[in-house]
Amino acid sequence: MTNNRNVWVFIEQDEGRINDVSLELLSKAAELAQTLAGQVWAVLCGSEVADLAETAIQHGAARVLLADHPELALYRTLPYTRVIADLIRAHNPYAFLIGATPVGRDLAPRLASAVKCGLTADCTDLQIGDYTSKKESVTYKDLLYQIRPAFGGNVIATIVNPKTRPQMATVREGVMRRREPDAGRKGEVEPVSVSLHPEDLALQVLSREVREPTVHLKDAPVIVAGGAGVDSAEEFQLVRDLANALGGELGASRAAVDAGYISREHQVGQTGTTVRPRLYIAAGISGAIQHRAGMDQSNKIIAINTDPNAPIFQVAHYKIVGDLGEVLPLLIKALREKAK
């Protein structure tokens, strides 16, 4: 086994399309690998997916391990675990990043259990740093800090895996910034042999239905979000109107979703979508920690709230202490005037 410092990324693809989170992770891995003086390797599994390797290279992979086999066409736990666990054992990577999607959250724990390494779920940040174990009085250099909200989002925990390799983590979608692809980048593609055992095929996919997302919060440049401070479903129309006037997407706090004002796909926050728009307007949202976790990296934040002490004001760039029933129409009117 080599004592390398390589950072691996699992490339999640579905019917020939790479999931955005995998590209986000390649960007992050490139940053980590630079600090570690290691390389970024991508693990790409599927059937007839060789052409996706180029995309992985353009996004930062120095080498793509390509497992191309008909049995890998649709994601299934056991065949994917077989192939990837074998690759991990053969190459012993330093760290391994996987998107915290339904696929990633199915695969990562199975893999970690197979190769007996530590795993941290749903990370929102990754850094490199040292860790001193008080019990052993040993300092481990350059570990992967796996940072995640814990305890219902009330605390932020930093987890390390001092001894086992790879240091494995699943990472939330949308929290790492994706870099632009570089068409000039060169990398190697290494086809790997796939040898499955009969028991790996114990599960069969009979049918699948994938809905296209109808809400595009993650990439929206402008988001207008409403919370429990909105009185009724009718009043929520004001939030919609402002979003329309700005050409933005609609967001919501969990309380607004629970109240039935809007569907769950619009929820921003720890258990919703993480967003980073150019402009985020929060109307009638108190700014609970689980909500802020999904929006506090927005470029500019406008908060509208009747309570001057609402926590949302602490992350806001523009504070409007007032009733949203009055403020939203004023905003809409001012925008319409400007548009004329």
Binding site: C117, G118, T120, Q146, N154, I156, A157, T158, I159
Partner: peptide, 11 residues
């Protein structure tokens, strides 16, 4: 347990 909690911060 391979994972260890390095630190926990209240936000």
């Amino acid at each position: 347990s391979p994972t260890q909690v390095y630190k926990v911060n209240y936000v």
